[in-house]
């Protein structure tokens, strides 16, 4: 058969004819919903900014470092809440971080596959328990334990440091920190584990070949995973800062700034939970919304930073 150039060539295409109309319609329809998701974040930010403008205008930055919270006189400063949120979250991190790293090492370096799977699943289940259940458990189990055992124990042996002192109620910063620690363990653990698992085996083999022990090998893996674990920690911190019910039920809800971990305190999310539905004046409501806006902003910054870090680490080894 001879191949000859085609006899006929027809005019070049018009744009609309080489597409399927149904496909175009469908694509644009799904696009609309994607835009809805996209705009939700902006709508939320805008509405909260608008809702808190009264408070922002009246108090400015003073809102962050004064401690008067007087709905009757209309004077609001959120410092005790900010302080409570930050300190309880830090306590949670101090408890959760070493444990999470330990479990991540266990899951990625030590456990055989048949054990890694169910343990990972159980850690994930911890994240699925509703926060109200953590609160309930914290209130009826953890708080008495802190009151009767942990509190007296640390006051007795570490009481000379002001940090480990305070009122013997059980409700307080320490109880909140412990509950929060349990709640943020899963997120820090699962991301650290993923980061450590993404490190190529050649790293481990190289270390073993030099005669390193398991632990020395693990240290090399850890130093590779450092920034990933940092990202995971930021995500955990974000979760702790926004947590509401569990904290509200165990922190004691007293707006004071105390150096003692055993003293009752208050948090930003808790004050929203307790006072929002009772806010009577515009200014009061506006001040509460401003606290919400702060939580929103801090959480977004932490999440974005964390995702950036985790993403840059995992993509380095992904290849």
């Amino acid at each position: 058969m001879k191949i000859e150039p085609p006899v006929l060539v027809f005019p070049s295409p018009s744009k609309s004819r080489n597409r399927n109309i149904g496909d175009l319609v469908f694509k644009n329809l799904t696009l609309v919903f994607a835009i809805v998701v996209l705009s939700l974040v902006f709508v939320m930010a805008y509405e909260m900014y608008k809702g808190s403008s009264l408070s922002i205008e009246k108090f400015g930055w003073r809102f962050l470092w004064t401690s008067v919270w007087d709905p009757v006189k209309g004077d609001f400063g959120a410092l005790p809440y900010v302080y409570g949120t930050i300190v309880s979250s830090l306590v949670a991190l101090v408890i959760a971080l070493p444990l999470s790293i330990g479990v991540s090492i266990f899951l990625s370096e030590l456990a055989p596959r048949w054990l890694e799977r169910p343990v990972s699943f159980m850690v994930e289940l911890l994240a699925a328990i509703p926060s109200i259940v953590y609160g309930l458990w914290g209130m009826f189990v953890l708080v008495p334990v802190v009151r009767k055992f942990i509190g007296p124990f640390i006051t007795r042996y570490l009481g000379f440091i002001p940090l480990f002192n305070g009122a013997p109620y059980g409700f307080g910063m320490l109880a909140a920190g412990i509950v929060l620690a349990i709640m943020i363990l899963p997120i820090i653990t699962s991301i650290s584990r993923d980061v450590m698992m993404s490190i190529p085996n050649t790293q481990r083999e190289a270390a073993f070949a030099l005669g390193a022990t398991k632990w020395e090998t693990t240290k090399i893996i850890l130093s590779n995973a450092k920034s990933g674990i940092a990202g995971a920690t930021l995500l955990g911190l974000g979760r702790a800062i926004g947590e509401t019910m569990a904290v509200t039920m165990v922190i004691g809800n007293m707006p004071q700034i105390s150096a003692h971990l055993l003293d009752p305190a208050y948090s930003m999310a808790s004050v929203l939970a307790n006072e929002f539905s009772e806010a009577t004046t515009q200014l009061y409501l506006s001040a509460l919304i401003e606290i919400g806006l702060l939580l929103f902003a801090v959480r977004i910054i932490l999440n974005a930073a964390a995702r950036l870090i985790v993403w840059s680490v995992t993509s380095k080894f992904a290849q």
Binding site: P6, L8, F10, S12, P13, R17, N18, R19, I21
Partner: peptide
């Protein structure tokens, strides 16, 4: 061309 018509000129 399919039967003389450009397939890139029509609905895929």
């Amino acid at each position: 061309l399919l039967d003389g018509l450009n397939i890139y000129d029509s609905d895929p």
